[in-house]
Write a protein that binds this DNA or RNA. Structure first.
Length: 487
RNA sequence: GGCGGUAUCGUCUAGGGGCCUAGGACAUAGCCCUCUCAAGGCUAGAACACGGGUUCGAAUCCCGUUACCGCUACCA
């Protein structure tokens, strides 16, 4: 097969949001296509009209776009008229070629028989009774207007394939029942629709979740009955929650949109997802999209279900936050910073260099974009709010703290230049002169400057605040403590 | 129940007969760095599900058992 013949698709059913498991499947398809210069397609499986919604479709597109998984060609809708008609044509063709037959058993009857079998602890499989109907009988029922479904007549033998991740898998056909391919209302059942569409879309590799393994033999049978060449199949392992069960709402955030709002970068999300079911080999872990595209290989595909651990996702996000270009991160965190309500985008634009240096200072200590915005707050407020616990600790003795602040204020005010090195030298000298250790000296200043007990280095912050603002904050804290003393 | 799949530290994984007294990462604990918090560095504990084979030799190959997961619809 030539590389250009690679055509893969992601085929979600629009009944919810883009789930992390779906996102992982989409990512693998995308990576595979991009690496081989193939085509990545999107097909919305909306044949179940009752459960499909437009909001869901939009949410899935949005999730894919955010992740950067761009698709080629027009999105295809499985439930659209031309598609439906083709599904019916294919079903009819199989009826005519003898690969399928009409079944007049009603859903209720089937249900009862299934329950009876269950009560006897027998496994239920359709008994093919309608396949034994005479041609005349069938014609009579059709003429009488009896509703019927079309069932595929599963042949003798065994159906297997060579899976890209599981190697060889085979199912004895006797374990596959004569499954329905067309409902009594003329709409197709999943397996028919999928095969019909994959043939039509000339899909070369069907890559999906493990949960489709048992559908595969049925689909292969359909390809054969339809006289079409089958694609290569790949079944990726499932993603589970911390309890080992299939990931669901109970496990917390499972929609990719949840992570977007949490301040996770799409690069980190993809990187993390890629490692669930795939490994580039060796100790390689943190990768850019370009690196993953280059390294992706079916040899690294894993069989075991992976547990989704948000702790590692967060760590990985921190790694991407540090590695991505500063202006890129600064631009992406901007909406969150503006959302604090403390500053406008225009104001930040006006002092872009200052904003960049601020973000540079904060990003090493953040794991999410939201944390960066949170840590940026003290730098954006007009008046500092002193955190009670921080003040209680750093300003334990108000008189002493006030003295330190006053001395620091005088020292810094006397500084000729407002540069990091000079400032540090001046304060270090002050500390030595007063016999104050770094902690004793700097902790009160930290609270005066930020109101918090944790922050970037004082010497890094001073230039960010600037001379005027720094001195003002020192003075304000001193004032605050003075009030505290008289009270 | 039937059928199918999977099985290395708590988690993500490296490993494809000897390089394995099993490596890396997250998490956890401790130390270093240090003005706090991160980041970074170092260290520790922590795994080949079990039982049989095959082989001079098995985490790696085969079989069985067990556990877990999935499918078992006129859902997708």
């Amino acid at each position: 097969m030539t590389a250009s013949a690679v055509r893969v698709r992601f085929a979600p059913s629009p009944t919810g949001y883009l789930h992390v498991g779906g996102a992982r499947t989409a990512l693998f398809n995308w990576l595979f296509a991009r690496q081989l210069g193939g085509v990545f397609l999107l097909r919305v499986e909306d044949t179940d009209k009752a459960r499909s919604t437009e909001e869901s479709t939009a949410a899935i597109f949005e999730g894919l776009r955010w992740l950067g998984l761009s698709w080629d060609e027009e999105v295809v809708y499985q439930g659209s008229q031309p598609f439906l008609e083709r599904h019916q044509r294919d079903a009819r063709a199989m009826l005519e070629s003898g690969h399928a037959y009409r079944c007049f058993c009603t859903a209720t009857e089937l249900d009862e028989r299934r329950k009876e079998a269950e009560a006897r602890k027998d496994s239920f499989k359709y008994d093919r009774r309608c396949d034994r109907l005479s041609a005349d009988e069938v014609a009579a029922r059709v003429a009488a207007g009896s509703p019927f479904v079309i069932r595929f007549r599963v042949p003798e033998g065994s159906t297997g394939w060579h899976d890209m991740v599981h190697e060889d898998i085979a199912f004895p056909n006797k374990d596959i029942e004569d499954f329905v391919i067309l409902r009594s209302d003329g709409t197709p059942i999943y397996n028919l629709a999928v095969v019909s569409d994959d043939i039509f879309m000339r899909i070369s590799h069907v890559m999906r979740g493990d949960d489709h393994i048992s559908n595969t033999p049925k689909q292969i049978l359909l390809y054969q009955a339809l006289g079409a060449a089958r694609p290569v199949f790949a079944h990726f392992p499932m993603i589970h929650g911390l309890d080992g069960k299939k990931l669901s709402k109970r496990h917390g955030a499972t929609a990719v949109g949840d992570y977007q709002h949490l301040g996770i970068l799409p690069e980190a999300m993809c990187n993390f997802l890629a490692l669930m079911g795939w490994s580039p080999g060796g100790d390689r872990e943190v990768m850019s999209m370009a690196e993953m595209t280059e390294l992706f290989s079916e040899n690294g595909l894993l069989k075991k279900a992976a547990v989704f651990d948000t702790k590692k996702l967060e760590w990985m996000n921190g790694q991407h936050i540090i590695r991505l270009p500063l202006d890129d991160i600064a631009a992406r965190v901007l909406p969150s910073v503006v959302a604090t309500g403390l500053v406008t985008a225009a104001a930040l634009e006006a002092k872009h260099a200052w904003y960049l240096s601020l973000i540079d200072l904060l990003r090493a200590r953040a794991r999410t974009l939201g944390e960066i915005a949170e840590m940026a707050k003290p730098f954006l407020v007009q008046t500092v709010t002193y955190d009670a616990a921080a003040a209680a600790k750093a300003w334990k003795d108000p008189a002493e703290a006030r003295a330190v602040l006053r001395a620091a204020h005088a020292t810094l005010a006397a500084c000729g230049t407002w540069e990091r090195a000079a400032l540090e030298a001046a304060l270090t000298a002050l500390g030595e002169a007063q016999g104050l250790g770094a902690s004793k000296l700097l902790a009160p200043i930290r609270v005066a400057l930020t109101g918090l007990s944790n922050s970037p280095s004082i010497y890094d912050m001073l230039p960010i605040f600037g001379r005027e603002q720094s001195l003002a904050r020192l003075a304000a804290a001193e004032q605050h403590l003075a009030g505290h003393l008289s009270a």
